[in-house]
Write a protein that binds this DNA or RNA. Structure first.
Length: 735
DNA sequence: AAATCAACGCTTTTT
DNA sequence: GCGTTGATTT
C-alpha cells in the first residue's frame, strides 16, 4: 500500500494554482472513484496530468501504482510528456499507454498463461481482412455475399463486446450461423499461425486475468489508481477490463464527455458514463464546464446544437471570452464554388498574418477533401491531409515487414504469401494453391510445407527457382542473428528483390516507394527498445514489429510544416484551431444519408455530436458552408442545407453573399455593384472588358442566369468565344 | 505467370 | 471520380 508522505502546503501550489475551482476539485479529490465530465476545451488533459502529479507528490502514491489509459498513441505520448515535466523527473514504473498497448504488454509478459506462442504477432486491420478473406474462400462461400469486409467488421464487433463464438446466439438466422463458422475458422487460423488482432489483444488480456486469479491479484495490488481518458469511447471489453482490474480496491478516475461520443460504430458505448456511477460504488461526478478555447458565439452555437440531443448527462459550457466574430455561412453553388470561397478566405487570412497551420478544413467524409486540395494547390497554399495511408500501412513497407514477420514467426502464412507474391518471382497462383492444400492436409505452415515440397522435388520450372531463392534468402537472414536490425532489413531488401522492384517502379511512377524502404531501414536504425519491453524480455525484432502494428506512424505530410490542416471531423477530435471551416453541410452529407435514412434517432444524435465536436474545434472564427449542387460518386446531387445549420440560432450566423451577381438583363442592373465578401468584384455587364487567366482578354457579349447560376458569354481576342460561369472563371474586370 | 482492362462500390477508422 | 478488385488476355 502506498505510504503517505508529509508535505507542506507550499509543495502543492504548482499543482493547483493555475486551475479553476472545478479542475482543482477533480485534481485534489479525496480517495474514491471519480467521473469527470469534461466539456470540449475545458482542460481535460491538464486535469488528468495534474491528478497524476497530485497522487505522486501529495498522496505519496508510487508511480509504480498508477496506470493511465488513453485511446491514441499521441494522447499517451502527450500525457507522459506533461507528467514528466510536472513531476520534473522521468515517470519510471508509471504505466501510461493505449488500451491496446497496455494489453499487448500484458500478453508479452504472460504469453504462456494467455495461451499464446512466445512469438505471437499482431495483425493489423489490413492483415486481418486478408486472413478473413482467406477463411471465407477456404470455406467455399460466395464471396459476393460474404465479404471479407463484413466478416472483419462482425468479428471485431463480437470481440469488442467480449463475445467468443460460443457466446453468440445466431438463432435461426442462417447468415449469422455462417458468419459464426467464419468466426470460428478465423480464430483457429489465428491460433495456428500465432496471430492476434487488435480486438483480440484486449479480449485476451481480459481473459488472461479471469483465468489466472493470482495474476489478476498481482496487478490489482500493484495498480491502486487507474486513470482513463476519453471514457465515452470505451467499448464493452475495455470497460470490463477496467472493472476487472479495479476490483474492489482500485480507484478509478474516469474523464470523458458524452457529447463527444462519436465512435459507437466502432463498439464504443456512451452508456458506460452512466454505468460508471452504478458500477463503481461511491463514485462522484465533477463537471468541467468552463471553456478556455472558443469565443462565446462559437460556444453558444455548439450548446444550441447539442441541446437537441436527449438523454445527455447534462453540461453547459460557458466562457469568459467575448463574443468575437460571428459565424459565417456560405451557400455555395457547387463544390468547386465552395472550395474557391474557402481557399479565398484562407488566402486573405494568411495575408493578414494568420499562419496556415492555424487553419483547418473539416469535413464529414474523406471524399470531400479533393476539391479543397485542388484549389489549395492551384494557389500554392501549403496543406496537409490527415487520414491517408500511414507509413507502416504502405504496401512496400508491409512487403518488407512480411519478411521480418516470417523471421520472427515462421507460422505466419499471410506473411509468407506476401513475401512470395512481391516482387513477382515465378511462383503463381497454382503453385501457391498446391502448397495451401498440402499445408492444410498436413496441418503445417506454408513455409514448412514449401521447404518440404522443394526438397521433395514437387515444385518445377520457374516456380522452383523462385521459391528456392526465397528460401535461401530467408535462411541467410535467419543466420544474421548477431547483426543489428537495420542491417538485416537492408540485406532483406536486397535478397528479396524488393528494393530493385520498387526502384524500377519509381522511375515510371515518380513515386517515393523506394525511398520509403530506405526510411524503414533508418527507422530500424534509430529504433530503441523501450525499458518496459526490455524488462519484459522482448527482443528487438518482435518489439519493432509490434511497434509497427500498434503505432502505424504518422499520415502523409510533415507534421511540423506550417500548412493548412485538412481532416475528417472524427480525426479532429481533441484538436483545436483558431480558424475552422466546416464544409459540406448538406443533409445527406452531414448528417450522412445513412443516419437520415435509417430513421434511427441514435444515429442522428451521433451525427449531432459530431457536429458539436466540429464546432468546438474553433477558437476564434468558424465558417460553415454547403453546396447546393455537388458531384458525388460521379453524378450530380442536389442537397438541402444541413438541419444542423438550422439548429444554430440565426443571430449567431452571418450569411456571406460572395458572388458578383448578374441578375437581370437590363444594363443598369447589370452595372449594379453587388456586395462581395471575398473579392471586390466590380460589376460586369455587356461590353465590359475582362481578363481570364487562360484565355486572355475579352469582351462580354452576353450573359444569362442570376446568382450562382450566372454565366457570361465572352468573346476573346483570338476570336473565340466562351460561356463562363462567373463564380468559377475568376475574371478580372478591366473596364 | 504477369500485365492489361473493365466492373464495382463507396461514412467515419484512435488501435 | 477514383482506387481496388477480378477477369481477360498474351
Amino acid at each position: 500500500m502506498p505510504t503517505r508522505i508529509a508535505t507542506s502546503p507550499m509543495d502543492i501550489s504548482h499543482l493547483l494554482d493555475d486551475l479553476n475551482p472545478a479542475q482543482r476539485e477533480a485534481v485534489a479529490a479525496p480517495p474514491g472513484h471519480l467521473l469527470v465530465l469534461a466539456g470540449a476545451g475545458s482542460g481535460k488533459t491538464r486535469v488528468l496530468t495534474h491528478r497524476i502529479a497530485w497522487l505522486a507528490e501529495v498522496e505519496g502514491v508510487w508511480p509504480h501504482a498508477i496506470l493511465a489509459v488513453t485511446f491514441t498513441n499521441k494522447a499517451a505520448a502527450e500525457m507522459r510528456g506533461r507528467c514528466e515535466s510536472l513531476l520534473k523527473r522521468p515517470t519510471r514504473g508509471l504505466w501510461i499507454g493505449t488500451f491496446h498497448g497496455l494489453a499487448h504488454r500484458l500478453l508479452r509478459l504472460h504469453w504462456h498463461e494467455a495461451g499464446l506462442p512466445e512469438t505471437f504477432q499482431i495483425l493489423d486491420a489490413d492483415d486481418q481482412q486478408r486472413l478473413v478473406k482467406r477463411v471465407i474462400r477456404d470455406a467455399g462461400l460466395d464471396e459476393s455475399r460474404f465479404t471479407a469486409q463484413q466478416g472483419g467488421w462482425l468479428i471485431n464487433a463480437w470481440k469488442d463486446e467480449g463475445k467468443r463464438p460460443d457466446d453468440v446466439d445466431a438463432g435461426g438466422n442462417p447468415n449469422l450461423r455462417t458468419w459464426l463458422e467464419v468466426y470460428r475458422s478465423y480464430e483457429e487460423a489465428c491460433r495456428r499461425q500465432g496471430l492476434v488482432d487488435f480486438a483480440e489483444l484486449l479480449l485476451r488480456s481480459h481473459e488472461l486475468w479471469l483465468a489466472h486469479p493470482a495474476l489478476l491479484d498481482h496487478y490489482r495490488q500493484r495498480f491502486g489508481h487507474l486513470l482513463i481518458d476519453e471514457f465515452q469511447d470505451t467499448n464493452t471489453t475495455q470497460y470490463a477490463w477496467v472493472r476487472l482490474l479495479a476490483g474492489s480496491s482500485g480507484q478509478v478516475f474516469a474523464v470523458g464527455d458524452d457529447d463527444q461520443s462519436i465512435y459507437s460504430w466502432r463498439g464504443a458505448r456512451v452508456e458506460h458514463m452512466q454505468h460508471f456511477l452504478r458500477d463503481f460504488p461511491g463514485a462522484r461526478t465533477i463537471r468541467l464546464e468552463q471553456n478556455y478555447r472558443s469565443s462565446s458565439t462559437i460556444l453558444d452555437a455548439a450548446n444550441a446544437v447539442i441541446s437537441r440531443n436527449e438523454g445527455r448527462l447534462g453540461k453547459a459550457l460557458w466562457t469568459e471570452a467575448g463574443r468575437g466574430l460571428p459565424i459565417a455561412v456560405y451557400a455555395a453553388w457547387d463544390e468547386r464554388d465552395e472550395a474557391r470561397f474557402v481557399i479565398e478566405r484562407i488566402r486573405r487570412a494568411v495575408a493578414a498574418d494568420t499562419r496556415p497551420s492555424e487553419i483547418a478544413i473539416l469535413y464529414r467524409a474523406n471524399a470531400l477533401s479533393r476539391n479543397f486540395e485542388q484549389e489549395l494547390i492551384s494557389h500554392g497554399v501549403p496543406y496537409r491531409v490527415y487520414g491517408g495511408l500511414r507509413f507502416f500501412e504502405r504496401a512496400e513497407v508491409k512487403d518488407a515487414l512480411a519478411w521480418l514477420r516470417l523471421l520472427a514467426n515462421p507460422a505466419d502464412d499471410g506473411a509468407f504469401e506476401r513475401a512470395v507474391a512481391t516482387p513477382p518471382r515465378g511462383v503463381g497462383e497454382k503453385t501457391i494453391e498446391d502448397l495451401r492444400s498440402q499445408a492444410r492436409d498436413g496441418g503445417r505452415s506454408l513455409l514448412a510445407t514449401a521447404i518440404d515440397a522443394l526438397a521433395a522435388g514437387q515444385v518445377k520450372g520457374r516456380a522452383r527457382s523462385g521459391l528456392g531463392d526465397l528460401l535461401a534468402a530467408l535462411a541467410e537472414l535467419r543466420g544474421m542473428q548477431d547483426s543489428r536490425l537495420h542491417e538485416r532489413i537492408d540485406r532483406l531488401l536486397e535478397l528479396s528483390g524488393l528494393r530493385a522492384h520498387y526502384e524500377a517502379q519509381s522511375r515510371h511512377e515518380a513515386d517515393s516507394r523506394a525511398a520509403n524502404l530506405d526510411e524503414l531501414v533508418s527507422l530500424a536504425r534509430s529504433f530503441v527498445l523501450s525499458a518496459e519491453d526490455e524488462a519484459a524480455g522482448i527482443g528487438e525484432l518482435p518489439a519493432f514489429l509490434s511497434h509497427a502494428a500498434l503505432e502505424a506512424g504518422e499520415g502523409q505530410g510533415e507534421a511540423w510544416q506550417d500548412c493548412v490542416q485538412l481532416m475528417t471531423l472524427h480525426a479532429a477530435k481533441g484538436l483545436e484551431f483558431p480558424m475552422v471551416f466546416l464544409v459540406g453541410l448538406e443533409d445527406g452529407m452531414f448528417p450522412s444519408q445513412r443516419a437520415v435514412n435509417e430513421g434511427d434517432p441514435g444515429k442522428l444524435e451521433e451525427e449531432r455530436r459530431l457536429c458539436y465536436v466540429g464546432i468546438t474545434r474553433a477558437r476564434r472564427q468558424l465558417t460553415l458552408s454547403y453546396a447546393e449542387k455537388r458531384y458525388l460518386r460521379g453524378s450530380e446531387t442536389f442537397g438541402r442545407p444541413s438541419r444542423f445549420l438550422t439548429e444554430i440560432p440565426p443571430e449567431l450566423l452571418e450569411d456571406v453573399r460572395p458572388r458578383a451577381q448578374v441578375s437581370a438583363p437590363t444594363l443598369p442592373q447589370m452595372r449594379q455593384r453587388m456586395v462581395s465578401d471575398w473579392e471586390d468584384q466590380p460589376a460586369i455587364g455587356l461590353g465590359t472588358t475582362v481578363s481570364h487567366a487562360k484565355f486572355g482578354e475579352g469582351v462580354v457579349i452576353g450573359f444569362e442566369g442570376s446568382g450562382a447560376h450566372a454565366r457570361v458569354h465572352v468573346r476573346f481576342e483570338d476570336g473565340s468565344s466562351k460561356w463562363l460561369v462567373l463564380a468559377y472563371a475568376n475574371l478580372v474586370v478591366l473596364g
